[in-house]
Design a protein around this nucleic acid. Structure first.
Lengths: 189, 189
DNA sequence: TGACGAACTTATCATTTGTTAAGTTGCGTG
DNA sequence: CACGCAACTTAACAAATGATAAGTTCGTCA
């Protein structure tokens, strides 16, 4: 539930604010393969996944380069777009039939200026996004593909239940063929 | 000048606030190789470089893995520490004799709660740090070592005037020997 | 139920990067 | 001034990853 996630970050979230948030939110049921936001378009929403799974990727020389995975009970948006006001560098696509809450960003900004609590939520979320990016950058810089694979296998096994190995390979920074080789070498161990 | 940098971000920065900032700041002259913040210690400051150059790195299997370069007229700190309250994962060291302004973080936080303008500065800076990390992560994920080298050579040539090639190689994610090879292959072109 | 395609694996060879060690250059310092 | 050291390069070989193509498995759907 979206309020559980919010309250885990800021503590109690009063009913009056819940009502405000609901006013600018829409629940959407989307099919597998549905494109939520396309590369080159502006990002005007914040999303929350009630059920399902979403990936974010970029076209690099004809291949999808996956940079983010989002699962049930996660918020997602292109924070880079919000900060820079640029068009989206990524495409966001559902990999399963999903139910998402779509929150209007301009209206959310308006709430932020009028109610400090929304500002706090926004800041805390931005901090979480930063730490996530920072961590993943360190993983890419400091560890081998094999170590990165083993990390995700051990620490984020849920990913393997929702995304295919080609997308996971891309996320790790290697090809699907290389990942297959790494997986093979691990079995006799 | 530090105020030019601040005003480039938020516009006019009134004299009364300048005085407040100066009260919690100390100008320090440090030697080449001086360690400003050590891995494993808490990060309680924000720094601004009046003159000089600073690198941030982490010990990975006996090698320095450089993750950040900072030059004159730049702010720097370990933002990850501020967000998570963890001890520093990086060591920050001057690579030249430098002059830096050291700003007390707890006192800065106190100013933030009392004067909204400091909060705004903090948020804008955090956004810049995020975009920087995001960009560098994309560079690592989407481009080859050679492309990354060419990017820095073209877009950030100042780096080459202050940091040695071993540190630059580390920053790009390869060994100094590999970087040397890449540089060699480029000359006959 | 049978054909197709997506997901994944395997094999082979090319390319990139790492590792080790030796060589060169230039600068600071006793 | 000469010595030593740090920065950088070069060479030879090893290891990791990419690219291409073919093979396997399995679920979907006409």
């Amino acid at each position: 539930m979206i309020y559980n996630v919010i309250e885990s970050v800021i503590g109690h979230f009063p009913a009056e604010y819940k009502a405000m948030l609901e006013e600018i939110s829409t629940v959407r049921h989307i099919d597998k393969e549905y494109t939520i936001l396309e590369q080159g378009k502006h990002c005007n929403h914040l999303w929350f996944i009630n059920k399902g799974a979403v990936k974010a990727f970029e076209w690099i020389e004809g291949n999808e380069r996956v940079s983010h995975f989002f699962l049930s009970q996660m918020f997602f948006t292109n924070y880079y777009c919000w900060v820079t006001k640029n068009k989206s560098d990524l495409t966001y696509k559902a990999v399963e039939d999903s139910e998402i809450i779509e929150i209007d960003y301009p209206k959310l900004e308006a709430l932020c200026t009028r109610h400090h609590i929304f500002d706090t939520i926004g800041r805390k979320m931005a901090e979480k996004i930063f730490v996530q990016e920072y961590f993943n950058k360190k993983l890419l810089l400091n560890y081998t593909a094999k170590e990165r694979y083993e990390y995700f296998e051990k620490e984020q096994p849920e990913i393997f239940q929702h995304f295919n190995l080609k997308d996971i390979a891309s996320f790790i920074g290697i090809t699907d063929v290389s990942l297959s080789r790494i997986r093979k070498e691990r079995i006799p161990k």
